[in-house]
Design a protein around this nucleic acid. Structure first.
Length: 886
RNA sequence: GGGCGGCUAGCUCAGCUGGUUAGAGCGCCUGGUUUACACCCAGGAGGUCGGGGGUUCGAACCCCUCGCCGCCCACCA
């Protein structure tokens, strides 16, 4: 006998091991099978599973299990990302904590070795956590962005793009992170609103004829000013254009130039120009061929280009000193409080400086064009569709992508420099050497570029590099383009856009046909989960507490939210209970010997109840299938929940009880077989969402019933014919359900004790209802807890009436009736009907409605009005009788 | 400044291309030792669908507008 509840802890590891060992995670080899492929968004090796991963991977697993059961050659390809900055940070911190040498002290090779060591120890954490969620990835194909194959792909891509002039080296301002001392790309910069000040500084004219006032939020940058710009049509300054001001503190004369960039409306209308430390000023400087004076070192301390007293000072210290000096010089013209956005590094959290360096860039603008087109013409579909707008907006305004990073952990840039600075970009050092030999006519020492590539450069190749590209592998031929990508919208620019660009450029095909953006998980208050807020929910703790299936079901059910998911443990508990409900339904089947019957044909059952539940099962299977096909995950769980709990358990099993306990052996046998079949289908339909519970029940039911071959996981998804839906059975069971519900309502409202076996009479019933009444007499007696069922001309005096279709039911329970309560009950029902009649009559009385609304809507309202009037009349009559009797 | 999403029962959310009395889960209240399940069963209360205007025979749904809440992009004169 099954236990009363499912014990996930005992079962999950065993089942997962069984699945994995069976080889069923790998796509089936059958060449005729249609491929279905997905690549995992590779988690960082530094990561541990958070609830966002849990959601994202649950949805992927639901989808891949579903497609696998449909007979597809389903591949879910897993792997991890080396995560340049994040990993380097973690390892550096660990080294520091352990009192080791710093990265720079130990040197590049030693440090990299340490990172690999760390990866071997801790890098697999998240992968094993995915297993605990039940993820059915094909681990035999697991990849890592820094493994040999992927590294080769990265070099190939870099070299190819370089030869195509789509990768180039350039000296320009970059977003510089002084903490990590590396360039970062635009999207790694996070704007934060902060309180700040505008300082108004006076710059005296060189000829002593006056001054010009400029404003800044970054006073220290004035040390690098090389001009003051005014608008060419600004009357206030027209006369000053071409003159010079003497830059205070520094003493350098700098010109007053005319440029449209200066906005007469803002501040004084004059703006200081610091080409080396401001993106806009850099452009102005270019236009006017201004000197570019870099005043910062890589740690954002003032360098030798600043006056001596500032050298070596931190930028913020220097800022204070500059202000003090202006004040002392009597040139501070005012301070204004302001709230403004300041760029911060998304990883380091420090203020980013625009900084002039040589870096490698990808010509994203060119690569973006085919990627835009592919979405426009639907070769790749983004869902929900509103993300297309975001995608287009970004792609159409894309800037060159800075891909070099001054880090050690990552793909080293395959560029070598000759003694004269000549650059050789080749896939290997040997190739670079031979290119150099050809160029110089002799062997010259080469020096490889010190930098590594942005992590997203390698992740951008993920859908094809993981399948073996640039080799022409079978996997590549079979599984590329991948079918669906499920990921978070927070990385639409970082990742999705780059994969589109790279995939199209190098394979000529889109990397995936569909992208489904899942919601973001928040806590119960709607706040983004973060360690600092202390509101993180650890999915593994939730798995421990409720089981993986309950968490999976919850996440799947809540995934419909457009933007974010607020998770509460109550909800998980509720879905855990749902699993228990199904477990106990199986227990019921076991106790009642509902076991699989070989050769059972659901289309041939005779009993109304069985024809009905077969039809309901067909409908449920259709609903779940359609939902999963369209990534409507919440609809899928909704359909499963309602079918299993509210249809199968609440009604089918209850209605089956009298048959199973009765002595019509043929009916009993058929009902047993049908119930067992429904349970099997339910297990199959639920399996993608709740794999552990269902697989365990599949096994257990096989043990108490007929044995069966194989795992639930690899069974064929139910494809049931519509012909099994029987409208007559539907109507009949529907009527029965209504009748029983009415009886229960009356009993509950009249406080009739369960032990009281009330007699029921039915009057005014149509022949069809009479037949139903006699056919299901036993059922009605038991589920309604009735003493007898009879037909009558009219409801007996003192009985409590209710409406069931065209008929009036009446329960003879006078001894329990509180007249006032009954009067209130009937009064309320009559009132509701009156309201309905009033509304409907008014509608029908409106000639415009009758003339313009579709005929069927008008007809519907007519029927409705007639029914309501009829029901109201019957209840009023009953109420009157009640009052005369008393 | 530009864009996106949200505002529906005490809470968390469904409500597809406008058409009965707006639904679910949780919570709450009442009743229940009905041998599958108290992680349960039966029943109930609870909403002028953020405000205002419009289109329509008819609006939670379409349009305009305002108000909050959240996110993304741009902006450090």
């Amino acid at each position: 006998m099954l236990e009363k509840t499912f014990d996930p802890k005992a079962v999950e590891p065993r089942l997962y091991a069984m699945w994995e060992a069976s080889g069923a995670f790998a796509p089936i080899a059958d060449p005729a099978a249609e491929p279905f492929s997905m690549v995992i968004p590779p988690p960082n090796i530094t990561g541990s599973l958070h609830i966002g991963h849990a959601l994202n991977n649950t949805l992927q697993d639901v989808l891949v299990r579903f497609q696998r059961m449909r007979g597809k050659a389903a591949l879910w390809l897993p792997g991890t990302d080396h995560a340049g900055i994040a990993t380097q940070m973690v390892v550096e911190r660990q080294l520091a904590e352990a009192g080791n040498m710093s990265r720079r002290d130990m040197g590049r090779d030693a440090f990299i070795a340490k990172v690999w060591e760390w990866k071997a120890q801790s890098g697999g954490t998240i992968v094993n956590q995915l297993r605990r969620m039940g993820a059915s990835c094909d681990w035999s194909r697991e990849r890592f962005t820094l493994d040999d194959g992927l590294s080769a792909a990265v070099r190939k891509v870099f070299v190819t793009l370089h030869k195509q002039k789509l990768i180039y080296r350039d000296k320009r301002l970059v977003n510089w992170d002084p903490q990590f001392q590396t360039a970062i790309s635009d999207i790694e910069v996070e704007q934060r609103e902060v309180e700040g000040n505008y300082w108004h500084f006076a710059y005296p004219l060189e000829d002593g004829s006056g001054e010009i006032v400029v404003a800044t939020t970054r006073p220290e940058t004035m040390l690098g000013d090389t001009a003051v710009a005014v608008h060419p049509s600004d009357e206030r300054y027209k006369a000053l254009i071409g003159k010079c001001v003497r830059l205070p503190i520094v003493g350098r004369p700098i010109p007053i130039i005319a440029d449209d960039y200066a906005d007469p409306e803002k501040g004084s209308g004059a703006v200081k120009i610091t080409p080396a430390h401001d993106f806009n000023d850099f452009q102005v400087g270019k236009r006017h061929k201004l000197p570019v004076i870099n005043i910062l070192d890589p740690q954002a301390r003032l360098n030798e280009n600043a006056p001596e007293e500032f050298r070596g000072l931190d930028r913020f210290v220097a800022r204070k000193r500059v202000i003090e000096q202006f004040e002392a010089l009597g040139l501070l013209r005012g301070v204004e409080k302001t709230r403004h956005a300041v760029p911060h590094g998304d990883r380091s959290g420090v203020v980013i400086e625009p900084y002039l360096t040589d870096q490698w860039y990808v010509d994203a603008k060119t690569l973006a064009q085919p990627a835009i087109k592919a979405v426009e013409d639907g070769r790749t579909v983004l869902e929900p569709a509103n993300w297309e707008k975001t995608y287009y907006e970004w792609m159409r305004n894309i800037e060159p992508w800075c891909i070099s990073r001054q880090l050690w952990w990552g793909h080293r840039i395959p560029a070598w420099y000759g003694p004269d600075g000549k650059i050789f970009v080749e896939e290997t050092e040997e190739a670079a050497k031979s290119a150099a030999r050809e160029h110089y006519g002799r062997d010259e020492p080469l020096r490889q570029d010190e930098d590594v590539l942005d992590t997203w450069f390698s992740s951008g190749l993920w859908p094809f590099s993981t399948l073996g590209w640039p080799e022409k592998t079978q996997d590549l031929a079979r599984f590329y383009p991948t079918h669906t990508l499920i990921t978070g919208f927070d990385i639409i620019f970082y990742w999705v856009a780059r994969m589109m660009m790279m995939g199209l450029h190098f394979t000529g095909q889109v990397p995936f046909k569909r992208v489904f953006f899942n919601a973001l998980v928040r806590d119960a208050q709607g706040a983004k989960m973060s360690k600092s807020k202390g509101n993180v929910m650890d999915p593994l703790e939730l798995v421990d507490a409720y089981g993986a299936d309950a968490l999976r079901f919850t996440l799947t059910a809540m995934s419909g939210q457009a933007r974010d998911i607020k998770l509460s443990t109550q909800r998980i508990e509720g879905y855990r209970n749902f699993g228990t409900k199904l477990w106990n339904a199986a227990r019921f089947c076991q106790m009642n010997e509902c076991i699989r019957t070989p050769g059972f044909d659901p289309g041939a059952v005779k009993q109304t109840l069985n024809r009905w539940i077969v039809g309901e099962t067909v409908k449920a299977a259709k609903a779940v299938t359609q939902a999963l096909e369209t990534c409507a995950f919440d609809d899928a769980t909704g359909a499963l929940y309602r079918f299993i709990w509210n249809v199968f358990c609440d009604w089918h099993l209850e209605l089956a009880k009298p048959i199973l306990n009765g002595d019509d052996e043929a009916a009993k046998a058929e009902t047993r077989a049908t119930t067992a079949w429904v349970l099997d289908v339910a297990l199959q339909l639920l399996h993608p969402v709740s794999p552990f519970l269902t697989e365990e029940l599949w096994d257990k039911t096989a043990q108490f019933g007929h044995g069966r071959e194989g795992m639930l996981m690899t069974t064929r998804w139910p494809d049931l014919p519509d012909a099994w839906i029987d409208p007559e059975a539907e109507a009949e069971i529907g009527w029965l359900v209504d009748l029983i519900t009415e009886i229960r309502q009356v009993r509950a409202e009249m406080n009739v004790p369960p032990s009281a076996r009330a007699p029921l009479t039915l009057s005014g019933a149509a022949p069809e209802a009479k037949q139903r009444l006699s056919r299901h007499r036993d059922l009605i007696l038991s589920l309604g807890r009735l003493g007898s069922v009879a037909e009558a001309e009219s409801p007996p005096a003192g009985a409590v009436p209710f409406v069931i279709g065209e008929a009036t039911g009446a329960l003879a329970i006078a001894q329990f009736v509180d007249l006032a309560a009954e009067r209130a009950r009937l009064g309320k029902e009559i009132g509701a009907l009156a309201g309905d009649i009033d509304r409907t009559a008014k509608k029908l009385g409106n000639p415009d409605f009758v003339a313009r609304a579709p005929e069927e809507v008008v007809e519907e309202n007519r029927e409705r009005l007639a029914e309501a009037e009829n029901a109201k009349a019957r209840l009023e009559a009953a109420l009157k009788r009640l009052e005369t009797v008393s």
